[in-house]
Simulated assay, not measured.
Amino acid sequence: MRYTRDELLDMVSAQMPARRWTHVEGVMATSVSLAERYGADPVKADLAALLHDLAKFWPIEQQESVMLEHGLNPELLEYDKQLLHAEVAAFVAEQEYGINDPEVLDAIRYHTSGRVGMTLLDKIVCLADYIEPGRNFPGVDRIRELAEHNLEQALVAGFDSTITFLIEKQKVIFPLTVLARNDIVRRLGYDDK
């Protein structure tokens, strides 16, 4: 890592409005809490959460340019532009900030979409992004309650909420999100009932 945590805090917070920085702080605190509860590394959880939205407020054209110039996941370009920032953030975290821990980079990369075979850290950062204290959407309190007892059940509820929202808005759903949800459902044995 090229920078201290304090330097990263300054660099990332400078790239976004104050309300988004408040969100990032909430994701950091929630990620650390979930990591401590479920046995993940809280330092890695904090770092991934700190960097998860670092490209969120870059112009879409800039995000697309990074994607194309560096051969990042081209499939993302066919879906909602809100997905791009996670892939770009993971790339920037590695290339510009010197983060070389693949577990941290993947947690950043998959915090919006999920993936099949999510690691514990992936699940924690993804869920923390859903339930941090500043989030206020129908069903978030139920997801928070589930997170107290079962990380995977809470994550499925989060995916369900996102998928339902996209369906109601008649939006295209990124297939990896459905696959990530289904993978966890199978692991929980819900499919066998």
Rank of each mutant, 00 (worst) to 15 (best):
W58N: 00
E103G: 03
L105C: 10
V156K: 02
V125A: 08
L76E: 00
L9P: 02
D80E: 15
M118T: 03
D122G: 10
P42E: 13
L127Q: 12
G117S: 05
R5S: 03
E103Y: 00
R115Y: 07
L76I: 12
L51A: 03
E36W: 03
Q153V: 02
D106H: 08
R181G: 03
F165H: 11
H85L: 01
N73T: 09
D160C: 01
L121M: 06
R187Y: 01
L8A: 07
P42D: 13
I108H: 08
A14Q: 14
I131Q: 10
W58I: 00
V178I: 14
K81N: 11
M11N: 13
G71W: 02
A147S: 13
I124E: 15
Y79I: 01
S33P: 00
N73E: 13
G189I: 07
K193I: 15
I173W: 05
E132L: 02
L51W: 04
R20A: 08
A128F: 13
T4P: 01
V66K: 07
A128P: 01
F165Q: 12
E78G: 05
T112V: 03
I60M: 04
H85P: 01
P102L: 13
W58Q: 05
V24M: 06
G39D: 15
D192H: 13
N150F: 10
A18D: 12
H85C: 02
A157D: 03
L83Q: 00
A18R: 15
L179E: 06
V32M: 14
A40D: 13
R20E: 14
V125E: 13
V12N: 04
I173A: 08
T22Y: 02
A29H: 04
Q15G: 14
L34S: 06
D106Q: 15
D183E: 06
I163C: 05
Q82D: 13
V140Y: 12
I173C: 06
E64L: 03
A29F: 03
N150W: 11
K123Q: 15
F57P: 04
Q15A: 15
R2T: 12
R20F: 14
P133G: 09
R19D: 09
P133K: 10
Q95L: 07
P138H: 08
R5N: 01
K171V: 03
P175M: 04
E148A: 11
L121G: 01
R109F: 11
S113K: 07
E148N: 09
L47P: 00
M118Y: 02
L155W: 04
V12E: 00
A147H: 12
A157S: 01
I163H: 02
G26N: 11
E132A: 00
H52W: 13
V172N: 04
F57S: 03
K123M: 15
T162D: 14
A35Q: 10
T162A: 14
Y79F: 15
I184Y: 02
Q63A: 00
R37D: 05
D183V: 10
K44I: 06
R186D: 04
V24P: 00
L179D: 04
E25A: 08
A18C: 04
T162N: 14
Y110A: 03
G189F: 02
R135N: 12
D80S: 12
D106G: 06
E61Q: 13
A86Y: 10
A45N: 02
K123I: 07
P138G: 07
M1R: 10
